[in-house]
Design a protein around this nucleic acid. Structure first.
Lengths: 345, 345
DNA sequence: CACCCTCTTGCAATCGATTACAAGCCTCCG
DNA sequence: CGGAGGCTTGTAATCGATTGCAAGAGGGTG
């Protein structure tokens, strides 16, 4: 009859105590006398007893888990954020459930925002329907956010970061600057575009040449094609792309066609994913503190689960990382001869 | 008094039926008469009732979740595997819980392998202790595996794949070939090294120059430094690295020092992560079917959870992807003159 | 010796949904 | 008209652990 998984009453019987005492040994050992405790522990060992979490969760009315909704698990940008979250949550005894929002419908997703499924929710996808997420479990929004929802946001100042990036390009002497956007409608895309425009306008420069994109490698490659297709004298001498992945695709395409970076075009990315510091040329970019974003989001959520009032928005600092993909524009021969011409005579 | 979360008895009261009927409407609607069903559904809508999963799980003795143990979430190699798993599992109504094994101790990890936590376990980390994982929930091992454990494995033929990679290099005319290994003790590292050695031995060539590594970008960079530090005439003319990430680091370091790939050294990677097709030069590599690995592992686990006998090992095909980072060795001047010398006179 | 206090332990209700079993109601047939 | 059989529904036990309440043991004090 011992072929079944042992339950708490089996332990109790063997130790000659009540189930209440066994339970106390498990979750509140101090109130049990040392002697009893030892014999219960011995009985646990002998029976090979393991706690049933479903039962405990039912009683405690909590799940011990936190769900993260990620737009695309395949995107390496998110994995480090998740790693940061996982570290903090594990330290507090919480599981991290990860759900890929592109792999499932909205109905399924809402199922995760329930107290009986998770004690909290971290949303990394700004494209979810706002209405379904209201009045459920504590929620924190990280990176992207959903305009309609009242919840703390852990983010960076995308607009300011974009401005810094473009100011750097302007400072190098670039005047014709291109911008490759993220997916249309995305809050990050809009903010980074706005920052780009602001930086240019502040210097009295014309607005950027804007190319469409969606953060993916391949959309960066397509942007590269579009750039190459321009007449040489119309090409921006510097391009700021809203993600590193796109910058990689862009550079790959440009190099593939025999042009060089930064000689023929300066390129600036966004994110500072690990790989781009090892490319040739190493990519100049804006560093997002990905682990820190994950950690802060998790801490913020834990605080809310613990009953504290939700914090306001948390804005983490970014950093301009200058590497080898940006340089002053090379003056074109035509201009050079015009400028240098008189002196040469 | 309605400030509490409504339970099934609240719905039952409102609809004027018993809790059993409400439960049946929820999980087995066909046995309930159409009229009753409609009134119960109306009551559910009015109360805003939501099912309590903890209670259902307790009763069903299942959790509806599957845990994946991943060695390092930050590694983009795993994210696509997870995406594949998540897609299959979501389709079958299971959650995917992801745990980063490097963020937690072994004790914590074993806690995931319990029937009350998860209905199954997919292990992607070969370095876990074998003993703790026995006799718990259904387990599938993917990519890496744990020698002591009896469980279906979803994998590729690492040795054969490495052989194919090295045969390609040999076929191009390379004779001095280097290999940068994965982490010591790892089953993948061993198999890929063995395949490399086999391919060389089969052609009567000397064993490879073996450099240490750990799959990470930075260890690839260090391998690049080590390669550069060799006297030019001892440097392998081709290097096969056990991961794409290392290949990126290696190429970055070599290019950084002014040498060119593949002119000065052919480089071959392993994995075919998305980024490497966009680098310059585009990386020749072995493609692992990552999504398929995740999908097959999930399917296999679902079958086991469903009570089917565990399948045998599943070996998925790899593919040699030839791009621009490999080419015939450039004959060195010394050799060239020796060979061409007589003819020249 | 009666009384109070502290420490340990057990009893039994509870968390919320599921389901085996039985009962009630119809209809149909011999 | 009695009974078999099909539907639908309700009753109550069950899943396994937790915990408020109270009782019993032991020690100290007036």
């Amino acid at each position: 009859m011992q072929h079944q998984r042992p339950k708490i009453v089996d332990v109790a019987r063997l130790a000659g105590v009540s189930t209440a005492t066994v339970s106390r040994v498990l979750s509140n050992p101090d109130v049990v006398s040392a002697e009893t405790r030892r014999s219960v522990e011995e009985a646990i060992r002998q029976t090979g007893y393991r706690l049933n979490h479903a039962a405990r969760n039912l009683r405690h009315r909590r799940t011990g888990g936190v769900v993260a909704l990620v737009p695309n698990l395949s995107n390496p940008f998110f994995s480090q954020i998740l790693a940061g979250m996982a570290a903090v949550l594990a330290g507090a005894g919480y599981n991290l459930l990860i759900a890929d929002t592109c792999a499932m419908g909205g109905e399924t997703l809402l199922g995760y925002a329930e107290p009986s499924r998770a004690d909290g929710l971290i949303v990394l996808d700004g494209t979810l329907p706002a209405d379904g997420l209201k009045r459920r479990v504590p929620i924190v929004l990280a990176c992207e956010w959903i305009p309609g929802i009242e919840a703390p946001r852990v983010k960076i100042d995308n607009r300011a970061a974009a401005r810094v990036a473009v100011e750097h390009l302007i400072g190098l002497g670039h005047r014709r600057i291109g911008h490759v956007m993220g997916p249309p409608g995305n809050v990050l895309s809009e903010a980074r575009l706005a920052g780009t425009e602001q930086a240019l306008a502040a210097q009295g420069l014309p607005p950027p040449l804007v190319l469409p994109g969606d953060f993916s490698l391949d959309s960066g490659r397509l942007a590269g094609e579009a750039w190459l297709a321009l007449p040489a004298e119309q090409r921006p001498t510097a391009v700021f792309l809203a993600s590193d992945a796109m910058a990689c695709g862009f550079i790959g395409e440009v190099q593939h066609c025999g042009l060089a970076v930064p000689r023929d075009v300066s390129v600036m990315g966004f994110d500072d994913i690990e790989l781009v510091s090892h490319m040739t040329p190493a990519l100049s970019t804006i560093r997002q503190p990905r682990e820190a974003i994950g950690r802060r989001a998790a801490q913020c959520l834990l605080a809310m689960i613990g009953g504290e009032a939700p914090e306001g928005d948390i804005v983490l600092p970014t950093e301009l990382v200058l590497r080898a993909s940006t340089s002053p524009p090379v003056t074109t021969p035509a201009i050079k001869s015009r400028e240098a011409g008189p002196a040469r005579l």
